[in-house]
Design a protein around this nucleic acid. Sequence first.
DNA 1: AATACTGTTTAACACAGATTAATTCGTGAC
DNA 2: GTCACGAATTAATCTGTGTTAAACAGTATT
Lengths: 239, 239
Amino acid sequence: MLTAHLKKLRLRTAISAAEEEVIRGLVSETREVGPDQLLVKAGATLDSSILLLDGWIVRSKDLATGQRQVTEVHIAGDFVDLHGFTLKQLDHDLVTASDCTIAIVPHERLVELTERHPHLARAYWLMTNLDASITREMALSLGQRPAISRMAHLFCELHLRLEIVGKTRGDSFDFPLTQREIAECLGLTVVHVNRTLQALRKRGLVEAGGRQVTILDRAGLESVADFDPAYLHLDKRSL
Amino acid sequence: MLTAHLKKLRLRTAISAAEEEVIRGLVSETREVGPDQLLVKAGATLDSSILLLDGWIVRSKDLATGQRQVTEVHIAGDFVDLHGFTLKQLDHDLVTASDCTIAIVPHERLVELTERHPHLARAYWLMTNLDASITREMALSLGQRPAISRMAHLFCELHLRLEIVGKTRGDSFDFPLTQREIAECLGLTVVHVNRTLQALRKRGLVEAGGRQVTILDRAGLESVADFDPAYLHLDKRSL
DNA sequence: AATACTGTTTAACACAGATTAATTCGTGAC
DNA sequence: GTCACGAATTAATCTGTGTTAAACAGTATT
C-alpha cells in the first residue's frame, strides 16, 4: 500500500531497503474513509499524522465570510499533514474529496525517526518543503495568472504528480473534484470555472467531465499555463 | 547578532544554552549587502543557506510575461532559504529589499545538526513549516480577500512578526518596501495599491509613508483584514 | 540650480471575473 | 418510473481591479 509513497520519495532521494522497512514501521493503523469527511479541523491538537495511500484529500482554509480557499490538493503517496509533526496544530482543515485509504503515523515514531534515522528525517523534511514549493506556485497562480492559465496549470501539475505515483492512464486520470472544489482551488466562482473549462475544451486542450480528465494537447496546455515543472523538484539529490 | 533569530525560535520551542552554542556554530561567515541585490537565483544549486540577521529580503517568482509575485517577506531572524537545505535549488529568487546583514550556513553543518542534534533539527524543520504556513495564509489572501483586506492583513502580520524579534516601536515599524513591491506581494497593480493605501489612511487605520508604517487602530485593521494569528503558531511546544 | 531618476499620486476608461438567478442534467432513493 | 437533490450550464448585469497616461515629489548627480 505504500508503493505510491515510496515512488514519490525515491524520485527525490535514494531510499535503501532497510530504510523502506523503517518507513513501513511508521504506520500504526490503516483506515478507509468516505468522501467529504473532515479528517482534521484547523486548530485541533495533533499527536499523529496522516499518510494518504489512495484517494484525494484537500487542505482548505476558511474566511469568516465563509469563503474557502484550497491550499493544496493531495493524491496517493502524499503525507498530508506531516507538517503537523512540528506545528502540533494545523492552520487549515483536511477534507477528503473522494473515497480514501489513509495510514496513521504517530508522532512518537517520527521523533524516533529523527533520532535514529537522520537521512530519512531529511527525506521527510524535503517532503514538507516540496509541499511548500507547490503552495508557492499556487500563490503565483492566484496572484498573477488569469483564470484559464490557473486551470491549465492545475491540470498540468496534477497529471505530472499522478504520473509519478502511477495513477494516470496515458493522458487521462481520474479526477474527483467538483467544479465547486476547482473554484476553491483557483480562487474563482463556480460559474467562472464552468466558463473557463469550456474555453479549455473549445481550444482542444483538455477533455473533462464524468469524474475524469484527459489532456488532449499537452504542449498547448503547458503553454497556456506557463507551466515549468522545476518547482516540483523532479530530480534525485543526495541528502 | 543572532538575537532576533533566537527570539523567534524560543517563542516556539525551548532552546538550551548548549543548543544556542550549536546554533552559533552553524554560521561560517557574515556579510553586508545593499538593497535590490539578487542573492539567490531560482534554479541555482545551493550548498549553503542564508540566515537574515537584519534587514528585509523577499522571495519572488516570475512569470514568462515578466509579472512577479512575492511569495514571502522576510525580516530579521528568518532563515530565508533553509528549505534549500533539502531542495538543493530554489523555485524562486531571493532579493534584498533594504540594506541587509546576512549569515551564511553551509549545508554540511546542517547535515551534522540532523545527525547529532535531532531536537534542533526538529526546531529548524518547524521553522520551514512555519514559512509554509505563512505562504498558505498568503494564498488565502490572494484567492479570497479583496485588496483592502489583503493590505491590512500584510500590515497586521508584519507588525506581529517584527514585534516578536523586537523590531517595532509601539505601533510603528520601519517598512522599506516600495508600493511596487507591495503590489507584487498582494497581486495588485501599483496604481491600485496606491488607492488602497489611501483607503486605509482615510479610514484612520494606518499611517504609511516615508519608509515607515504606524498602525493607528489595531482592532479596526485586524477586522478589515480578517486577521487571526493562529497561522503564525505563536505558542511554545515540546519537540 | 538644472537634470535625471525613481517613487507616488491622480484621472479616465476598459475588462476579467463576480453576482444573481434560472434552467438542465445525472443519479440515487423509493 | 418519478421524485429529490446536488452538480453543471447558461444568461444578464454589475463591480473591483487593471490599463494607460500624465503630473508631481523627492533626492541624487553634475
